[in-house]
Design a protein around this nucleic acid. Structure first.
Length: 201
DNA sequence: CGGCCGATCCACT
DNA sequence: GTGGATCGGCCGA
């Protein structure tokens, strides 16, 4: 079933980032529905996290979305090429987000493969935050999309996550964040615990 | 208004 | 392992 507003509204973004592992990210773009199991996330913890775009309570055209109620998409352009998809979490005016860094294709796999210029094994094709958006055709113009709607959303199909399933480590590419660069806010679902994949799509 | 740079990916050596 | 692609956001003048 689709995740509710309550799920996203926790102000504990680190816990939400962990709980998103094993959930399924869906998009329905141009009439094509595709989805993938979330296997890698990173937490960005609001105004006190130097790695977070909203650090220091910075409100700009780009970061305003992070201040919205949890359950909103925050998508931005990185390196002029890649759209990076985040889930806004927390209450209104608490600017937290979870970056989705990796998915395993679950639904519409032939469409997903068609969207990728590079041929990789099925369990690699959705790894990397730019690749997540490419697989699901999420674009930075989708920023602000309500995840309660029918364009981009996340479902729980009953996968039970245990602490032993999760590996944690420092976030990627945030060396500029000083002491916050070493926080263990990156979470990966260990491969041996990947949910059973339905590769028929 | 100009300049720098990024929560990256991929082709190529 | 290295470097090019590519452009909106952000900051300082």
């Amino acid at each position: 079933m689709k995740l509710t507003r309550d799920f996203y509204s926790s102000n504990d973004v680190v816990a939400v980032a962990k709980q998103l592992l094993g959930k399924i990210l869906f998009s329905n773009i141009d009439g094509i529905q595709t989805a993938g199991y979330i296997v890698e996330t990173e937490a960005y913890d609001g105004i006190n996290d130097k790695a977070c775009h909203a650090f220091g309570n910075r409100r700009t055209g780009r970061t305003n979305v992070m201040f919205m109620q949890g359950g909103t998409a925050y998508v931005y352009l990185c390196y002029g090429i890649h759209s990076l998809f985040n889930v806004v979490t927390g209450q209104k005016d608490v600017p937290q987000a979870v970056l989705i860094r990796g998915i395993i294709p679950y639904q519409g796999i032939r469409h997903i493969l068609k969207r990728r210029p590079v041929k990789l094994p099925i369990d690699k094709t959705g790894i990397g935050p730019g690749n997540v958006s490419a697989c699901l055709r999420i674009h930075y113009s989708d920023t602000g999309t309500d995840l309660m709607g029918n364009r981009i959303w996340i479902e729980d199909h009953g996968f039970i996550l245990k602490d032993s399933h999760v590996a944690a480590g420092p976030r990627v590419g945030v060396d500029y964040a000083g002491e916050d660069a070493s926080l263990p806010y990156r979470f990966l679902l260990r491969k041996e615990f990947y949910p059973e994949m339905d590769l028929s799509g």
